[in-house]
Design a protein around this nucleic acid. Structure first.
Lengths: 244, 244
DNA sequence: ACCCGACGTTGACTTGGATCAAACGGCTCG
DNA sequence: CGAGCCGTTTGATCCAAGTCAACGTCGGGT
């Protein structure tokens, strides 16, 4: 079931939150500089995860959460019949592993979709430090809450939207997240397969492909394999609104 | 759009976590008795919400989370076209309002499905106290994480299960939660309509109704309107496994 | 006690997306 | 440079669930 013994290349390189260009997206947001220095001590090490490798696997004991510094991940579970169900995609500045807190073991797999770096944040240290630093505590609570809101948004998408509406929502969401990170809102490279998009959106890969083609016909986007160019953001939004 | 000016009956009656029979399901879990006493001060008041009334509405400023002491709630949002999308059902010992932390305003509506009591937990006080009480902090983090895991479970259900599988999962989940609360695992009263179940499960009410009938034909359950008697729990589980 | 309206069931028909199948494009690796 | 494979596209067909419609049932209010 598991892929044949992939060794996880894991190297610790010291990094400082205070130097990180993601600090406004991540846990240090709004902290004073002396507080950020304490964070630096907490985030002991960085870990490099190559494309295709696991950051963690479902069932492994939970010890740390991870902040994506660079790269792109998917999270998901493998169902009994071998099918994969994707539960999310994470990009730089986003946290991974929050699901593991409740049961003290990871409930899903996290796989890098491109060569990536993460900050390893030992959870007990995070709890300890957020008892000292009020705004760190509050940031962390907000991040967890945002994850809940995000998941509920997807529940809504899965519960009440049609294939094209789902894909439009997906593209707009990616676009928005790329924008926040200073990339182009309209042109980007998908790091996941049609299959993975489909799994995430509750659709089959053929349906995803057809919806892409349909959008292209309507001059809403131009697709070339994994390269996406959004030509008409308002048009995509209109598709979303249609029945939601 | 809103129902005609329903007045929320809200009365404060002092209650103590230390006396509450739900403390093992709720935030006080595992706390020492002196710590639970501090919790008592935090939970300033109880609020009574009558069937059909809102505990809070989407858009209202977020100040407190709520613990259900008694009763039954649904959470959901109203979509532009007036349709309701249900995002969850909450029973005694469960927390409501966690989604509001991230944006500092509630992102959904919470409505009582039967006359209910909740404990009002001012969030800033909870954060303050969990900086003092390590196990309270940890409990709270676990509760939030559990909510994330729960939502992801529903994403999986919505993304990859058929109507009957969804309903089986729903019934088994309810059964399990009633059991935890000391009620019968096999016999209970649904407090929500077919419409609400359908909205939650991403199905139309007719489909829910048909699935109930199908289960009844197969002697898995007996349904009489809102009264459910589960006759064959392993049988329901087998339906779940079938394609998941 | 009765009526009304909300909720639930069931049947007939339609349809969006799944499934099955075939062909193509673009990497990677020998 | 060519072979092979993975991922993608597109077409044809099928089926689970949605839609529309009619009827049944329960419970609350006068």
């Amino acid at each position: 079931m598991h892929s044949p013994a992939i060794r996880i290349s894991s190297q610790s390189l010291q990094v400082a939150c205070s130097q990180c260009n993601l600090r406004e997206l991540c846990l240090p947001y709004g902290l004073h500089s002396d507080e950020v220095e304490k964070l630096d001590e907490m985030v002991g090490m960085r870990r490099r995860v190559k494309r295709g490798q696991h950051l963690y696997r479902a069932g492994e004991p939970f010890e740390s959460i991870f902040a994506v510094r660079m790269g792109f991940f998917k999270t998901g579970v493998i169902l009994e019949d071998g099918r994969e169900q994707v539960t999310g995609f994470q990009m730089s500045g986003e946290l991974l592993g929050l699901d593991g807190i409740s049961s003290e073991s990871h409930t899903c797999n996290a796989v890098a979709l491109e060569d990536s770096d993460v900050c390893v944040i030992p959870f007990s240290r995070l709890e300890h430090l957020s008892r000292e630093i009020e705004s760190l505590q509050h940031n962390f609570h907000k991040v967890m809450s945002r994850e809940i809101v995000r998941d509920q948004g997807i529940m809504m998408l899965l519960g009440s939207m049609h294939a094209e509406e789902r894909l439009a929502a997906f593209l707009l969401n990616l676009s928005q997240r790329f924008t926040t990170r200073g990339f182009s809102p309209s042109e980007f490279h998908l790091r996941m397969t049609r299959q993975e998009i489909g799994s995430y959106l509750g659709l089959k890969l053929e349906t995803v492909s057809r919806a892409f083609s349909k959008f292209q016909e309507g001059n809403l986007i131009s697709v070339q394999q994994k390269h996406i160019h959004i030509l008409d953001i308002p048009g995509l939004r209109r598709i979303l609104r249609k029945q939601d």
